[in-house]
Design a protein around this nucleic acid. Sequence first.
DNA 1: CATGATAACGACAACGATTTTCATTCCAGC
DNA 2: GCTGGAATGAAAATCGTTGTCGTTATCATG
Lengths: 127, 127
Amino acid sequence: MADTERWEPILAAVGIRATNQRLLVLDALAAHRLPVSAQRVHAELQDRGERTGLTTVYRALASMTEAGLVHAFTHAGEAVYRLCGSAEHHHLVCRVCGLVAEREEKDLVDGFRAEEVYGICAACAER
Amino acid sequence: MADTERWEPILAAVGIRATNQRLLVLDALAAHRLPVSAQRVHAELQDRGERTGLTTVYRALASMTEAGLVHAFTHAGEAVYRLCGSAEHHHLVCRVCGLVAEREEKDLVDGFRAEEVYGICAACAER
DNA sequence: CATGATAACGACAACGATTTTCATTCCAGC
DNA sequence: GCTGGAATGAAAATCGTTGTCGTTATCATG
C-alpha cells in the first residue's frame, strides 16, 4: 500500500477532484512502465484489498486521460493506459513488446501533428 | 456491381484463394478512400444484394490483412480497413477526419520501424 | 457542525464488435 | 465424378466497455 497522497497535487493541478479511487488508480498506473488495461488496474486493486469497482476504474482513467495526465493506447483490441509526463510530445509504441518511448521533437512529419507512432522497436525488429 | 474479376490476380499474387466473397470484399474496399469497418463492408454488400455473411467478411479482411493487401487501423474502438498499395511504407492517420496518407520515407524515427502514425492532420489542426 | 447541491461510486444490466462453433458447401487435384 | 481440406454462414458465445440508477462522498455555505 503506497502513499497515494502524493498524487493529490497532481490531480489538483489538472483540475479534477482528488478522490480516493482516482488516487488508487494513479498509484497502480505508476507501478508500470508499460501501458496497462483498465481490467488489469482493477484486478491489481482488488488484489491489494481495495473495493474499487471496475466501472469506476474506467471512469477514472477516462477523466484522467481527458485531463492529459494519462495517455491511452490500443493494444490487441483493448485500451491500455500509461501515466505520462504531460507536455507536448508524441509516443513511439512497439506493437510487439508494447514498450512506449516519449519523444519531444516537433514536426516529425511536415504539418502533421503526430501523437502516437505504432511500429516495431529496434530490439524486436531483429528477430 | 463492379467487375470483381479484376481482383483475382491480386489475390493470386499474395497466395490466397480468390473466392467470390473475397473478391466482393476487395471490391467494396476499393470504393473507399477512407478506412471502413467490417460491418460497413458487410452492410454495403447486403445493399448490393450479396448474401455474404458478416463472419466471412471478418475472415476475408483478416486473411487479406495478413497477406499485406489491406491495412488495419483502429478508430473509435473498432477496426477499420483500407486497401493499400503494399510495399514498405507507413501511414499517417488523422484522428479527426480519418484521412490516411501513405508515406515511403524510411527511418522516420531513428531505428524504429514506424507503421502507423496517429495524429491530427494540417486541415483539422486549424479548427 | 449541520446542510444541501453536485460529483463520484458501484453493482448490474446492456451493448456492440469480434470470435467460436459446427454443420454445410465449394474447389483443386486426382 | 470422387475426396479432403479450405471456405462459408447462421447462431451462440466472448469480452471489453458503457449506461442505468440508487447510494455515498465531497465541498462550499449557513
